[in-house]
C-alpha cells in the first residue's frame, strides 16, 4: 500500500478568494499572551506585531516552547491574546464572542495537525464531512464535496476506511481534505509533517504547496524542519515569545 503520487492530483482553483491577494489577511498588533502555570506566570508571546498578506505562504520556526503553537492558536481563533489585537480581515478576533469565533473557524480557517487528529471511529469520507457539519450543508452536497476533496488528495478509493486502516501519510491527506473541503481562506498547519518519514513528508508538502498555489490560500506552517520551511515564501523565527524575520 503505497501513497499515491501528488503528480496525478488535479487541483481546481477556488472561485474568487474572499481576500484579494496582497491585502492583509492577518494583522497582529502588540499581541501578548501569558499563562499561569501553578504560581508562576509564563510569557508565551511578547508584543508580537505582524502582518501576513492574503495568499502568502509563511513558515514559522523556532525552539520548543518558543511560542510557535501559541501564535498559531491566536491566528486560528482558538485562543485570545492577553494583550493586543489579532485581526483576520476586518474581524478583531480578540473581541469576538466564542459563538462567532466558532463560526469563523467553521468557514474561513482550515487546520492541519501534527497528529492528524482524525475521529478514529469515522471513515475518511465521514471525517471530511465533519468539517461541513457546522455550516449546515445538506447531506447530499456534503457527501459530494467530501468525495471530491478526497479525490483531490488522491484518496478516493480509501474513502470508506477508518484512520487505523490508513498509513500516516494517508491520514494526513484525509486531514488536509477535511481542512480544505470548506474552501477556507486560511490554512494553518501545525507540524504537518512531524510524524512522517522523509518521502511522505515531501509528498504532503508537494500537496500543500500545490493547493496553496492553485487556490490562492494563505498558508501558515509551523515547523521544526528546515526543508519544509525553505519551501515557504516567508520565514519567521519565534523564540522567547518574540518574532523575527529570517
Amino acid at each position: 500500500m503505497s501513497a499515491p503520487s501528488t503528480t496525478s492530483i488535479t487541483l481546481p482553483t477556488p472561485a474568487d478568494p474572499a481576500t484579494p491577494k496582497g491585502t492583509a489577511m492577518y494583522t497582529l498588533d502588540k499581541v501578548g499572551k501569558t499563562y499561569r502555570q501553578s504560581s508562576r506566570i509564563v510569557t508565551a508571546l511578547k508584543d508580537v506585531s505582524l502582518t501576513i498578506p492574503a495568499g502568502q505562504m509563511v513558515a514559522i520556526q523556532g525552539p520548543t516552547g518558543g511560542g510557535k503553537s501559541t501564535l498559531l492558536q491566536m491566528l486560528g481563533a482558538l485562543d485570545r491574546p492577553t494583550s493586543g489585537d489579532v485581526r483576520l480581515g476586518d474581524d478583531v478576533l480578540s473581541k469576538l464572542p466564542d459563538r462567532k469565533l466558532a463560526k469563523l473557524r467553521a468557514k474561513e480557517i482550515g487546520f492541519v495537525f501534527q497528529g492528524f487528529n482524525l475521529i478514529p471511529t469515522l471513515t475518511a469520507q465521514e471525517n471530511v464531512e465533519t468539517a461541513l457539519e457546522p455550516q449546515g450543508v445538506p447531506a447530499e452536497e456534503r457527501r459530494r464535496r467530501a468525495s471530491d476533496a478526497l479525490a483531490q488528495v488522491g484518496l478516493a478509493e480509501r474513502a470508506g476506511h477508518v484512520p487505523s486502516e490508513l498509513s500516516g501519510g494517508q491520514q494526513q491527506r484525509v486531514a488536509i481534505a477535511r481542512a480544505l473541503v470548506k474552501e477556507p481562506d486560511v490554512l494553518l498547519a501545525d507540524e504537518p509533517t512531524g510524524n512522517l518519514d522523509e518521502q511522505t513528508r515531501d509528498e504532503i508538502m508537494d500537496l500543500l504547496e500545490g493547493l496553496w498555489r492553485d487556490r490562492g490560500l494563505t498558508l501558515v506552517i509551523v515547523t521544526h524542519d528546515s526543508a519544509v520551511a525553505k519551501r515557504a515564501e516567508r520565514r519567521l523565527r519565534i523564540a522567547g515569545g518574540s518574532v523575527q524575520e529570517i
Partner: peptide
C-alpha cells in the same frame, strides 16, 4: 479531549 478539541477547532459549536 483531543477529538472534541479538534471538532471545536474545525468549527463545531459547543451546543453541537
Amino acid at each position: 479531549t483531543r477529538e472534541f478539541g479538534t471538532l471545536k477547532a474545525i468549527g463545531w459549536s459547543n451546543r453541537r
